[in-house]
């Protein structure tokens, strides 16, 4: 296995920008069938992504991103994530996510037959993951400082 690449070149792009580009040791993404962990030397793979968090590891440092629908292209030394929405933890508007969560929960509890449950469920999931990723911003910074 002498010719396995040691690092992965990761690019996270959204329709408006290049969010991340750099070398990483490991990346984990929310595939449609569940989370996928990718290490250097992975076989070429294509997958759709759903709402979830993208984790990348550089040495001991872990960075998290929020991601809502996208897709993933894996080559042995290169990973491209094309996310429709992707945000850094510090970009997430926590109060807005909290509001969205409350709103979605209320909607899911309501007995109104008009309620679009699927939409509310997606909104709730999105809000929950946003809060989760935003929460990790603090943890990451603390960890790096100590």
């Amino acid at each position: 296995m002498a010719n396995l690449p040691e690092k992965l070149r990761l690019e996270i792009v959204t329709p408006d920008r290049l969010l991340f580009s750099g070398e990483v040791d490991e990346v984990s993404v929310p595939g449609v069938q569940g989370y996928l962990g990718i290490l250097p030397g992975h076989a070429p793979l294509l997958s759709e992504l759903k709402i979830g968090e993208i984790m990348l590891r550089q040495g001991d440092r872990r960075v998290y991103f929020f991601c809502s629908w996208g897709f993933l292209e894996v080559l042995p030394d290169r990973v491209s994530v094309l996310a429709e929405i992707a945000e850094r933890p510090d970009e997430i508007d926590v109060s807005r996510a909290q509001q969205a969560k409350d709103r979605a929960e209320k909607r899911l509890k309501s007995k109104d037959p008009e309620t679009d449950f699927n939409r509310a469920k997606v909104a709730l999931e999105r809000a929950l993951i946003r809060l989760q990723v935003a929460g990790k911003a603090g943890v990451g910074r603390l960890g790096a400082g100590s």
Binding site: G31, V32, Q33, L36, A43, P44, L45, L46, S47, E48, E73, L75
Partner: peptide
């Protein structure tokens, strides 16, 4: 890369 054989999750 277009010619590569990929694995597909779906």
């Amino acid at each position: 890369s277009a010619q590569l054989e990929y694995l597909y999750e779906d």
